[in-house]
Design a protein around this nucleic acid. Structure first.
Lengths: 224, 224
DNA sequence: TGACAAAGTGTCGCTTCTACACTAACATGG
DNA sequence: CCATGTTAGTGTAGAAGCGACACTTTGTCA
């Protein structure tokens, strides 16, 4: 059967200083040597696609247990100047309390986080892949709990709002946002406060999977 | 690089007698010989994924120019009992005025349409793929013009409503449905009527791509 | 020409969305 | 310890959209 090379590429999203970032690695080899690219690599013969993603993520960030989701498969001709390569793109949502150790992987000389607003030129068609990932993330934000997956276990409502603003690319009204969140009734308020700022401390919340399941059982859709 | 076989499989949707149907082919070879399966086949080395879909569709139905969209890539181990096979699933929307010539293709002994409500047992994980396609179609119906792509060029409002009902799997209120359609303002009413029934003839409409583009320019989302 | 069958048409109450401004609580520094 | 700065936290009113609901019109066919 035809010699088609199969890879996975991963758009890893992460909140840093209230802004959405994407993980990029600097390529150590040709093609596109020294160019920034998405983390990823070849799928092994006895490895499910999802497992390849988990493996690559671990190799590049030493992080496990993050939310992953398949985006799209890019299979045009001429994507890779050397071989016929088809790539299955994924996105991953890395909570901001996970501390990824950005390690130079086997085929990556360097790795770092870039604001989605200010990405460098990317190798292959990776700019398209990031754009697709952003679109998917924006959509998912509105009817799933994807937003919480970018936050630490305990977070303030303002932090949550910043996620939505940074992903959607526009400012939201504080009172409307909080009303919607309250109506959802999926957050457990804690008796703890975030005292890291230099003003009034904000209450911390936890996302409650249990309450969320109840909503789904009732057939209530996510109104974000 | 690893010997991974890459295929495409296509969920072809079609309206027959006001009901949503899916095209299936009876497999002529093992594995799953004589079992019903989705049309599809191997991707060739110098062929883009989208082109492979177009080719397969033409081979199985002799139909060209239908709307196609990638769904998801199924890449688990053990999908195919013989080789490691990854399949990129697509869906196609075939308008009900296209007359597909269901031809026995090279690897298909027989082909026919099945109601989505009454599918036979399917080969491989094709049942999962159809389910995924249905979900996608249901979602797209609500915020895109996918519904019109299953209809002939000229159609009645009742025909349009039947598409929505058959895809969504529930009945809709005639007046509410028509109000929404009217508000959308993307249909051109014709001075022609459908006289095929045995009662009051229904006005025919055409979907207007031009009007739809205007809506998008204004930033108005599709409220279906 | 009468019976049948599908086409076509409006309203009202309810829910949901957006726009909008002030007070409360804590930290910091003089 | 008090004044200042900064973010947290809170409610309402008007507009728009949604679902539920029944009857008249217009053609076909026997």
């Amino acid at each position: 059967m035809p010699a088609i090379h199969l890879t996975v590429d991963i758009v890893v999203f992460h909140m840093l200083e209230d802004e959405l970032h994407v993980l990029l690695v600097k390529r150590g080899y040709d093609p596109f040597k020294n160019c920034w690219a998405l983390p990823g690599g070849f799928v092994e013969e006895n490895e499910a696609l999802d497992d390849a993603v988990i493996r690559e993520l671990k190799e590049e960030t030493s992080v496990t247990d993050v939310y992953c989701e398949q985006l799209y498969t890019f299979g045009g001709l001429g994507r890779d100047p050397r071989h016929r390569t088809v790539t299955v793109a994924y996105m991953a949502l890395m909570p901001s309390d996970k501390q990824p150790q950005l390690e130079a992987g086997t085929d990556a000389a360097d790795a770092s986080w870039f604001k989605v607003k200010k990405l460098p030129k990317l190798a292959f068609d990776h700019a398209d892949i990031v754009a697709y990932g952003m679109e998917r993330l924006q959509n998912k934000l509105e009817w799933t709990t994807a937003g919480f997956k970018l936050l630490p276990k305990r977070f303030t409502l303002t932090q949550l709002q910043r996620v939505y603003e940074s992903v959607l690319g526009r400012e939201l009204d504080k009172r409307n946002f909080r009303r919607k969140v309250e109506l959802l009734d999926v957050l457990d308020p804690l008796e703890k406060f975030d005292r890291s700022g230099s003003s009034r401390p904000a209450r911390l919340y936890e996302f409650s999977e249990k309450r969320f399941e109840k909503l789904k059982d009732k057939g209530i859709l996510f109104p974000f």
